[in-house]
Design a binder for these strands. Structure first.
Lengths: 204, 204, 204, 204
DNA sequence: GCGTAAACGAGACGGTACGTCTAGTCTTTTC
DNA sequence: GAAAAGACTAGACGTACCGTCTCGTTTACGC
């Protein structure tokens, strides 16, 4: 039977935790997600397999935490407001800037490969997916909500707009192209999205 | 080394092919994609493993073809034009109708589970992904292109609109919510998408 | 590396020692030797694993000491001479009596299972084997030596007989049948052994 | 669940079987029985673990068969009668010769180590023990029975002697010293055993 | 209609990784 | 400072599948 005793997290080895994060991210980057194995992570981290199984339920969960940790570190390095979408008063310009940056990130293999892996895993595994959304995706989307609310108050956006839906006009298509590879992701595409979404497809 | 001789498809057993499709779809529905194995499909189909390896390169490829076959059958049952997006002259109403139908399909577990599995696999496996897009997704998206081109000619849509980008304002957000489960998929959501995309977020 | 510091035995917990003996014997009786683990003994004794590793080099060593302790207690309960082979003047009768008693003991599962385990372990592990022989077996065999020497002095046994070898004519076959289960261990067998060994196989 | 299907022995790979025997015997000789693992045997034999698990229930069973096979080969090399105890008419001399040969064998590490391991395992595991006795030990003991019966018919042994018991006067003590290492195994000891057993301990 | 060659069902094979178990060590806290 | 508790590295366990490779057994085409 499985070990049903919950381990005592106060006695957890910080050293091992870090080594596992590092090994997991390195391996996914080097050989891809499918060929990254728990045995491989353990060996690379100089850790017993049981130490992984003790603290994580699956390979995907390890990678997710490793990613969250990475983001945390990056966020800590920057100031708090540094990650917010800028508000220059020109909504279109601000969105173009942030969408272009997102395009750049999604195109960079360093982010592309592990993020794809996590996303794909979350698509099939609902439990993991919800943790992924809550810890990584939702905070990123919230930045759009904040900016759109500000724009609405400034009268740059229709008063009846639901920001949760509105933001998906930008991130939805971008994610669609990125994940499904239906067409190349370019800055021009990002700009066009902002144009269409803000001004609509119908003639004015 | 692999058997480099190309098998003679004229001598292929139609019976086995059908049995493999059925077994693959049934197993994915019953135990999920991850726990569906080629051995399991072979056993369920009453077929030797080699018969699968002879004709398909991977589990995902089997499932993809099984899905294509399923769609083919459904399409054959309907008339040819039956799957096109209707053109009543009211673009918004036509889009609402088709998006609502899509929502209904994505919410139905019968389609949801295997489609998720295929999509997730295609996200990670580029080769499979491109076949998935070409055989299943692209034809479906083309229907939007056709309808949007017609709308553009009728002056119901801006003359400068790129239909390939424009259609993603509808399918992108829908796919986003479906795959990532960020929020429930409803008819109201579909309607709102049509409103935002056609009229834009900015005040007129 | 192992903790080379010799622990201070004066501070040793008598309570733990007893609990470990009891747990070890109980477990071997219940689940057999192979499936008795040091972890299991520690858990059952309510003792940390390190407490076992601190004082014993192996599972077999624990069991051996537990057994020695058990014998000690039994011996203390009886008088000192009580365990000697009786000397009624009739060597054959005395040997039959003691061999029959040995048969009874070897057939009793209470002794059979742990003694088998220890013996088997000692056969493979020379170090343990020698401790087993010295602490448990040798004292028992010495009783035969004593009785045979007395018989020799009384002229009931050839003057040139080496008691160390002679005693094995009794214990050797008995042990052989017991360990290898080549044939059932019975009182009749014990009697026959005494007859053959004392009188020889050759016709007189 | 375990694979309950019985494998088809007609399709068994003779090559793998031989390689497994060789690897098992080599490893036991090199690192001892306890530190010989199924993984190690598989790796050394260049064989998948499952191939071992498919055909044998345990490490001990592999070793037993390897040993039986070894004996078979040795027996096939010699003539049929070559392994019988010689009958020169001088029972004592014949027994001395065979016991001395046995001593030599038991002292040779090549036989000592794996035989010890198998014997010890058979002592604890009754099922394996009975297979060990039936396939390896019993045939060897039968040779004594045959010789003793011949001696009885020739009047060199008491008419009332049970050969099954009598033979244990020789093999029992020898096995006892060998397994328990109570004293060194020498030719002199073998000779003394023959003397005592044939002539008895009591004065004539 | 008969021979032959390819596809077939079956499943053994060498492997890899799984998730579990235990060994023996190390660390922290309690008595 | 011994002991309880238990996390740690290490690695074998037995299982599940992988993809390849024979085996006979159909099956269907060309002679």
């Amino acid at each position: 039977m499985a070990d049903t005793r919950t381990p005592d997290s106060t006695r957890r080895s910080e050293r091992s935790r870090r080594a596992i994060y590092d090994a997991a991210l390195a391996l996914v980057g080097e050989v891809g997600y499918q060929r990254t194995t728990i045995e491989g992570i353990a060996a690379r981290a100089g850790v017993g397999k049981q130490t992984i199984y003790r603290w994580w339920p699956s390979k995907a969960a390890v990678l997710l935490e490793a990613f969250v940790d990475l983001n945390q570190q990056a966020a800590d390095a920057l100031g708090e407001t540094a990650q917010a979408i800028p508000d220059t008063g020109d909504l279109a310009a601000d969105l173009r800037r942030v969408l272009r940056a997102t395009v750049d990130e999604l195109v960079d293999p360093k982010y592309d490969i592990p993020t794809r892996a996590l996303t794909a895993e979350g698509i099939v595994d609902a439990e993991l997916g919800s943790r992924y959304v809550d810890t990584l995706l939702r905070p990123a989307l919230q930045l759009y909500v904040d900016r759109l609310v500000a724009a609405r108050e400034a009268g740059h956006v229709r008063a009846d707009v639901d920001p949760e839906t509105a933001l998906e006009l930008f991130t939805g298509p971008l994610t669609h192209r990125w994940l499904l590879r239906t067409a190349p992701l370019t800055h021009a595409y990002a700009d066009r999205l902002v144009d269409y979404a803000l001004n609509g497809l119908a003639p004015r």
